[in-house]
Simulated assay, not measured.
Amino acid sequence: MPIRAIAVGRPEEATHPDTLKAALAEFISTLIFVFAGEGSGMAFSKLTGGGPTTPAGLIAAALAHAFALFVAVSVAANISGGHVNPAVTFGAFVGGNISLLRSVLYWIAQLLGSAVACWLLELATGGLTTAGFSLSAGVSVWNAFVFEIVMTFGLVYTVYATAVDPKKGSLGTIAPIAIGFIVGANILAGGAFTGASMNPAVSFGPALVSWSWENHWVYWAGPLIGGGLAGLVYDFIFIDQSHEQLPTVEY
């Protein structure tokens, strides 16, 4: 059972150089990802006036987030595992692949990276407002809640299949691009309904900078539940429990 592998972690882990380096890597990668993803939406809106709510804007957002996540995961993979997402970290935690203490440090780093990215965008664009996530007309909070659960389940399931599974073999070399692809595909599927966050950090930065928190809980609860379920399902059903669990996700 995955629950047997869950670990809180020792206090000294919080100040260990490797843990601090990993948290810094998560901060930088999340900053890179959010700056490129959020910035692409702001740039498209400035150029066309339509923003990401148009078909062309949705495609642009999907491509920008897919490319940016591919890079963000790749550059942090050898240091922190390249989570770049509190939901991925939570999914890794419930599967016993990272301690709770290390997870909390990752979450802090990811949220700070997103917030700093949005502040930098506001500064660099002369005060343009970062676009916070919101529900489309006719979409209820429960519709959005289900969307975010399912999309994040697909994302974290992909992370497990291509990066965490000890049997992945050479498949691990394409993990970053597979993860980027599933995020891009999910944006095409759910972007017109919820904005397709799948990532509490990505939602947190724009909400903090624009101070817009309407229905914000959806972008935390949905991804965390979806990520947690994916971690439990994949670890319990598909990973041979005789394998020794890793201290953190590695690509």
Rank of each mutant, 00 (worst) to 15 (best):
W217H: 02
F133Y: 11
V150L: 12
L208R: 09
L63W: 06
F147I: 14
I237V: 15
F35Q: 01
F35S: 00
E13F: 03
A137P: 02
M198D: 03
T162Y: 08
A72T: 10
T48I: 04
S134D: 05
F70I: 09
G81A: 04
I225V: 15
V73Q: 01
Y106N: 05
S45H: 11
A221P: 04
A192F: 10
H83A: 06
V156M: 12
A36W: 05
P166I: 04
L246E: 10
V34A: 07
Y106K: 00
L171S: 13
P166D: 06
I79S: 10
W220L: 04
A117G: 03
A115H: 03
G49F: 00
K168Y: 00
T173S: 13
Y251Q: 06
M1H: 07
L24C: 14
R10A: 12
A14L: 13
I3H: 12
S29L: 00
S242L: 09
M1I: 10
H243I: 08
F145C: 06
Y160A: 10
T89H: 06
V73N: 03
A144P: 09
E12T: 04
I225K: 07
V183W: 00
G96Q: 04
I79T: 15
V209D: 00
Y234V: 14
A221L: 15
P200E: 09
A14M: 11
F236K: 08
G41Y: 02
Y106T: 06
G184F: 01
L155K: 11
G180C: 07
E38R: 05
I187F: 02
E122P: 00
R102C: 08
I149N: 03
L135T: 09
